[in-house]
Design a protein around this nucleic acid. Structure first.
Length: 222
DNA sequence: GACCAGGCACATC
DNA sequence: GATGTGCATGGT
């Protein structure tokens, strides 16, 4: 019987072979990645691109400028990304920390050990576990595994975890079985999202999934 | 028109 | 601690 590590490695290989490199995160700077991480909460990336495009067009895609934008104006600019009132507040909370606590220096904001940085991020109202991990991995370039709705779907449907697994259960599953490699975590998460977009819809049964179709029995699920 | 999308905080039990 | 709900645009 294959170990969890062997299964996860074979899944990665199968996904990479099927889809190739995903070139994540599609943002030009760490700051843009962090902004995108908030805007993409429960939202299609295409809508986020429109919102980020608005910010770029207005020349506001830097911490000081964006922090100075009035709430109503900010909400209007990010409107295409949905939940615009809530996200305007969440973005502003994030920007306040960068500007006031880190001298508007994104490198300082993203500095420190992974665990310490994660604590700092999740203490910001509007930054949850997934958003924090996305910022750590894709903006700071530090190895933390990002778990999202597709990761849950994939892992449950392939018998890797029980349905009631927590976020950190899922995170541990991957981190305990894979080397702490930023590029590997980057590509793996992006590939899972790609898989989800094509085969793993919310209600629909995954049809044509390139991964093993039957649940595995793993020696330990979390 | 229904369904879905790269979550999170908060209320209530 | 678990469960339910509001938040919202835009593509398929």
């Amino acid at each position: 019987m294959p170990s969890t590590a062997e299964i996860l490695k074979s899944y990665y290989d199968a996904l990479y072979e099927r889809f190739g490199p995903q070139h994540w995160w599609p943002g030009e700077t760490p700051f843009e990645v962090a902004v995108g991480a908030v805007l993409t909460q429960n939202t299609n990336w295409r809508n986020v691109e429109k919102a980020i495009g608005n910010l770029k067009r207005e020349g506001l895609l830097d911490p000081v400028s964006l922090h100075a934008v009035p709430r109503e104006r900010l909400a209007e600019l990010i409107r295409p990304a949905g939940y615009y009132n809530i996200k305007a507040d969440r973005l502003h909370n994030l920007l306040t920390v960068i500007v006031n606590d880190c001298a508007a220096d994104v490198d300082i904001f993203l500095s420190g050990a992974v665990d310490e940085l994660r604590q700092r991020l999740v203490s910001i109202r509007g930054v949850g576990l997934e958003t924090a991990d996305s910022i750590i991995l894709y903006a700071a370039g530090k190895p933390t595994f990002v778990v999202d709705t597709y990761t849950f779907r994939m892992a449950v449907r392939h018998g890797l975890v029980f349905e009631d697994a927590s976020y950190d259960d899922m995170k541990s599953l991957f981190e305990n079985s894979l080397p702490a490699d930023t590029q590997l975590f980057n590509e793996y998460h992006a590939l899972i999202v790609r898989l989800g977009k094509e085969f793993c819809k919310k209600r629909a049964v995954c049809s044509g999934c390139p991964l093993e179709p039957f649940p595995h029995t793993v020696e330990e699920t979390v």
